[in-house]
Structure formats: C-alpha cells, structure tokens
Write a protein that binds this DNA or RNA. Structure first.
Lengths: 199, 199
DNA sequence: TCGCGCAGCTAGCACTGCTAGATCCTTCGA
DNA sequence: TCGAAGGATCTAGCAGTGCTAGCTGCGCGA
C-alpha cells in the first residue's frame, strides 16, 4: 500500500524531528546546568556529551560549535530575565515603585544566577543587540526596562535614559558579583541611584 | 683573596637579580603587548615563551602560573589608569568640570585599551579589592574617582556615591565595548548621568 | 682547573575544541 | 522476506592548551 507507506514515512520523519528537537534542548539544558553548578570552565564538549549520553560529534550535528551552545543558553536566559522583570514591574502600579522592583529583580537575577548573567552580558559574544536582528527574548528584556523607565523619563530622551539606567544596573551587578563593592551598602547604592536618576 | 671574592659574589648575585627582574618585566610586557594586539585568547604560554625567547618552563620560575602573569598585567594597568584619571582631574579647578574630565578619561581608557580594561574589571579574578590587601595602584585608581566626587557629594555618603558613579561608568564602559549601546548617544548618556548624579 | 649546583631545556601528561572515516542500524524497494 | 542504500552515530585522532618531571650543560667558587 503505497498510501500507508508514505503516511508512515511522514510520521517517522516527524518523530525524528521531534526527537532531534528534544535532544537539542537536552544539550542546552545540560550546558546551563553544568555552568550553573560548576562554572563555565567546566562546560567542555566531553562532559556535555557524557551528560546527554551521546558522543561528542553529536553535539556538532546540532550546533556549529561550542560557542553556539553557549549562545543558545544565553538567548534562553534572556527570556527568563525578561519574564522576571515583567513580573516585578507589573506588580506595582506606582511608576517609581515599579521601576524599583524591576531594578531589584534585575540585580537579584544577576546575583542568583551569576553563570547565566555572565554569559548574557559579560562574556564577549557576537550577539546582535541594537539591530533588529537581535533575538526576540533579548529585545523583550530591554523593553521591560524601557517600559518601567517611561513614566519617569520627564523631559529626557526615553531610550537614552533607559540605556543609562541599564548601564548603571549592569555596573552594580558586575562589580557586586566581583566583590568590588561593600556588600552592606547594597541598598544604599540602589536608593541613591534611582533617587538621582528618576527623582 | 677572600674579600674581593666575597665582593665579587655579591656583585654577581646583584647582577643576577637585576637580570631576573628585567626578564620578569619582559614577560609582563610581552603578555600585555600580545593581549592588546591579538586579544587574550592569543596569550598562551608557548607564544609568550617564544616572544621572550625562552622556553615555557622559565615562565613558571617567575610566576606561579599563567593567571599570575595576567594578574601582573592587570595591576600594572591600574597604575596607568590611575595616572590618566589624575591628570584629567587635576587639569580642571571647577569640581563639576574635573569630574566630567575624569569620567571621560575613564571611558576613553576603556575604549582605547579594551584588553587592559577587560583584565582589570571584566575577567573574574581573585584580586582583592575592598580590603587593605588590595595592591596600591588599585586603591589609587579608586581614590582618584573618590577625590573627584568629593566636592560634589552634598549630603550623601561619599564612598557610597563614589561606588555608584564608578558602577555607572563601568556599566557604560562594558556595554559600549560590547556594542550594546547606540554609539551616537555616547555623550548624551554621559551628560545625563553626571547631571543627575551630581547636579 | 676542577667539580658542584642550579638555570634552562626537552619531552611529555592530561586536557581542550573539533573532525575524518569507519560502522552499524534503520528504512525502503524488489 | 531479504538485500542494498542511506544516514545517524561512534571511534580514533589532530593540533592546540597549561603545566611539570627529569635530564643537561654552563658558570661560578674553591
């Protein structure tokens, strides 16, 4: 029966694509998990292959190289961050409170998930940012900050002010993670920053 | 003649120590030069050894490991940055102008010498910072920012405000270097930041 | 001038990212 | 039902990494 045979081949191909997609995600998950528990220097192709219970070359049938795997983790993480920023922002009606909650959420993400923050913002990557080619989760994360800043922009250019706010948060996040700021003054710094930038 | 012999041995030992110190500096210079021209991924022990015209093991008689060489470059660079910040700050009598010049000098350093800035502030290192064990050039660099901020601190805690200013500059520096901010708005961001933080 | 001590080298280990080529298993057509 | 074709997967290996054990030969002191 040629008809059932062709139906079968389509179903089989679909199943294969589904299995491939699952394994693709398995690799990304393993990389993220390994990085979060042991740091990015522990993420090697051999250890990754061992985790997903396949040989190394399989990784290269899914990704062009190790960098592409790391990039996939980064893009996924932008989605997580965007979601958390949104939750924090929308939990407050008052603009100043919303921005503050968003800022706290941003810094919490950076300190709670340093490996993810590192690969998203610190490690030099060729991820497009400003352009329209930037991945959607990435634009979403920036959009969250922008939305929170908007009601407080006053006479300033919204996008410029957003860039400044983001830069300051990023600076606080990375210097804090590098233990270069006095931990006890964490909240005082944030208060001072937000009070001055959007007072 | 035992006296001349012992004098000779002292002189010889001094010469050896001098030569060792010169070679020590030669290694640090080679590492810095290699990093600035080809990036830190090009700084390998083999290429470094080739540059200084010795075999690899010689590096390990001077430094505990590759990390120690990189750290030496970082510490040296803190001295350079501190000097440039000082020059910019002392060139202006008016406090706001002095702080602005210092900020511009900071961002210029980051963009003109990205490899140095990276190893000083971006790469995760175990360099002590807040403590008194921090290397002198490192404390000097922070002190320059603090001195420039001081006249404009107003009612705020000086050290906290300095940390915030530094964080914001650091954020601008790293996000700019990663091409994540709109280049054309560079000056607008700095104006906005300084105006708000120390207005 | 001789012998010692140590500076510096050669060679190699265990690891890295990545890939060529062999192998086996699945699927399809006769 | 069976053989052949195709592709998915693995083994083995390359060139490079940081680092070190152990040999060698030179320079100094007596």
């Amino acid at each position: 029966m040629s008809s059932s045979a062709s139906i079968g081949s389509v179903a089989i191909q679909q199943r294969r694509e589904r299995e491939r997609a699952e394994r693709h995600q398995l690799i990304v998950d393993a990389a993220r998990q390994l990085a979060e528990t042991e740091g990015w220097e522990a993420v090697t192709t051999r250890r990754l292959a061992e985790r997903v219970e396949y040989s190394q070359p399989v990784l290269y049938s899914h990704f062009k190289g190790k960098d592409a795997i790391v990039r996939a983790v980064a893009i996924e993480s932008f989605g997580v961050l965007a979601e958390q920023l949104r939750a924090a922002r929308t939990a407050h009606a008052e603009p100043a409170a919303a921005l503050r909650a968003l800022a706290v959420a941003y810094l919490d993400f950076a300190s709670a998930r340093p490996a993810l923050y590192e690969v998203m913002f610190v490690r030099p990557t060729d991820l497009a940012f400003g352009t329209s080619e930037a991945p959607a989760p990435l634009r979403a994360a920036f959009g969250e900050i922008l939305t929170a800043v908007q009601p407080l922009a006053g006479g300033h250019d919204l996008e410029t002010l957003t860039e400044v706010v983001w830069s300051a948060l990023h600076g606080l996040a990375t210097l804090t993670s590098g233990q270069r700021l006095r931990p006890a003054q964490h909240q005082a710094r944030l208060d001072l920053l937000l009070g001055r930038l959007t007072g």
